[in-house]
Amino acid sequence: MGITTVIRPKKTFSWNDIREIWQYRELLYFFTWRDLKIRYKQTTIGVLWAIIQPVSTMVVFSVFFGSLAKMPSDGIPYPIFVYTGLLFWQFFSAALSQTSSSLISNAAIITKVYFPRIILPVSGVITQFVDFFIASIVLIALMFYYGYVPHLSGLLILPLLLIITFLASVGGGLFLASINVKYRDVKYALPFVIQILMFITPVIYPASIAGKYSWLLAINPMTGVIKGARGALLGTEPINWALLLISFTAVFILFSIGFYYFKKTERYFADIV
């Protein structure tokens, strides 16, 4: 006993919701565990998949953009330049597409059991973290190969970059997941949108080619993240704190919108999913 539950017509948000997410942290763990288990069980090559994907993309990009198109890369070998960008970008894009479908694909659970719904999209993003860490092994290998030693201060900034990426994925994912419940054609539009987003993010090119308009790119939080990562790991430029602040603000706004919209529509999920 000791627990009292009061059910009322739902408000959009109350502080209790935050406490509740903490109470359900084990379920968050189990959903993440399940997704990882299934992903690596169903494919024969399993964990290797997390490496093959970014590496093969890196190879293709290096050949076409690096060697053939002679894309500038701030004087860094193109493979390592593009791989740093891809590492963060693939985390973001995969998390975004996984979270956007997280409610639909768990409809059977949503309509039968109560738990804070936000756990599902959040666990979708956390799952991608694992892929990220596996894929970053390749980056370490590349850094050895090309002889790059990161600054200590650069390493310290990595967690901050991860937090920004995490919040961007969760914020965007929450928004997409909730509109996906209502409008099922979102999933057809999303891959296309992600594709376009990649081209307005300096993944395959350096942000410097935008010249004096490069600050505009900074509104896209992933720009700050990728630039920051290159600066920290490859020493392309000093850390641009102003840029990171813009990214952080943008991500905070994105997250707030996503969170608000998710909470607003959350109560109807079980009725319409």
Partner: peptide, 10 residues
């Protein structure tokens, strides 16, 4: 799983 429109449950 779904909220009520009116009323209260404790």
């Amino acid at each position: 799983i779904t909220p009520p429109t009116t009323g209260e449950i404790v």
